[in-house]
């Protein structure tokens, strides 16, 4: 694992390794000294071609807790005013000695371009590309779900997957990188995923995805859900005939107070409500739902730092390919190399 570009090609062993490492990183947050020296002397560049203060500060906090130097590069450009090309920017960062580039870009596939070309040699972390993927968001969602799921079953979270967990994701799947990353990762971790959306906001070809698809949120809830994830509705969709009005959207596909009560009536007392933020309160999620004890919105934010620490640590400390297997033999090798440097 030299780069973290997508969850589509992230194997179960690697995914669980990131989540397990994130658990150890989370423990650091509870200490008096909330800092580890692991990435001292390494440089992490936050390269943002699109505004996202939340994601940027989360990565910044993660890198700083690992003692990395952080450079924030807001290369905000639109397709209209192009400015400097991605290639020139990448070569500039390479010349500045970046060890990792955390890239947010409005164009799908831009992180893949950085990783595939010889423009820069650094590790590339996709912090959200167009309508493609947002792998660290999916990892922090999975981390949040795993903690909930294992606590519910009184089992150990380290090493666990999400087998048997029923997850529903509702909203603008067509334009959502969060939905895509979650579908692939949750499949890999063994969860049972249902996408709920108006047909206009589902991509052609969604029937080939490893999940169920529903147009009816109430029926999905009635069938039983352990985690209900609401996606943000982007403002620009509202005037492009994807749905008739925000009122109709909210009534059919929003998580409103009626549906919050329905969870109790359906006996789904342990169902959590998730949202990647920022929320449109009153549109895709009601305030009562967002603020209910079921809501994991703030836990997701907190877990984001731990998951991003884990990703940065695993990508930047040496060659991880050798340690990617989880067999007993690999355990011996790891112990051996540890002792040889004792």
């Amino acid at each position: 694992m030299k780069h973290l570009l997508s969850t589509e090609n992230l194997g179960a062993a690697d995914a669980i390794r990131i989540l397990d490492t994130a658990e150890e990183m989370a423990a650091v947050g509870d200490r008096e000294v909330k800092k580890l020296p692991a990435l001292r002397g390494r440089t992490v560049v936050n390269l943002f071609f699109e505004d996202s203060t939340r994601t940027r500060i989360s990565f910044e906090a993660a890198a700083k807790r690992l003692s990395a130097d952080v450079i924030n590069f807001a290369a905000k450009g639109s397709s209209v005013s192009k400015g400097e090309s991605l290639k020139d920017t990448a070569q500039t960062l390479s010349a500045m000695g970046a060890d990792a580039v955390v890239i947010r870009h409005w164009a799908s596939g831009a992180p893949h371009r950085l990783a595939a070309t010889d423009w820069i040699d650094a590790a590339v972390i996709n912090a959200g590309d167009g309508t493609h993927e947002h792998p660290t968001q999916a990892l922090l969602d999975a981390f949040t779900m795993r903690r909930h799921w294992t606590k519910l079953h009184g089992s150990e979270s380290i090493g666990a997957d999400l087998s048997g967990m029923r997850v529903a994701i509702a909203g603008d799947v067509l334009h959502s990188r969060v939905a895509r990353s979650n579908v692939w990762l949750l499949r890999t971790l063994g969860a049972d995923v249902t996408l709920v959306a108006p047909p206009t906001l589902l991509p052609i070809g969604v029937e080939q995805w490893p999940c169920k698809v529903s147009y009816n949120l109430d029926e999905t809830l009635e069938a039983g859900v352990d985690a209900m994830m609401m996606l943000r509705v982007q403002g620009e969709r509202m005037n492009a005939s994807f749905f008739p009005s925000t009122r109709e959207y909210s009534r059919r596909w929003g998580f409103d107070d009626t549906r919050l009560r329905a969870l109790d009536e359906l006996g789904l007392k342990d169902t959590i409500i998730m949202h990647p933020g920022p929320m449109n309160r009153g549109l895709e999620i009601s305030s009562a739902a967002a603020d209910s004890p079921r809501s994991t919105v703030l836990a997701q934010v907190r877990n984001g730092v731990s998951v991003r620490m884990a990703a940065l640590y695993l990508l930047l400390s040496g060659d991880t390919r050798e340690a990617a297997t989880t067999s007993g033999a690999a355990g011996t090798d790891a112990a051996r190399s540890e002792k040889e440097n004792n």
């Binding site: 596939g109 895509r180 991509p203």
Partner: peptide, 17 residues
């Protein structure tokens, strides 16, 4: 951006039906 179908759905590139 590309042919609309199974691949565009995964890649998140606007489909060309």
């Amino acid at each position: 951006q590309m042919n609309e179908g199974a691949v565009s759905a995964v890649l998140g590139l606007a489909g060309w039906p």
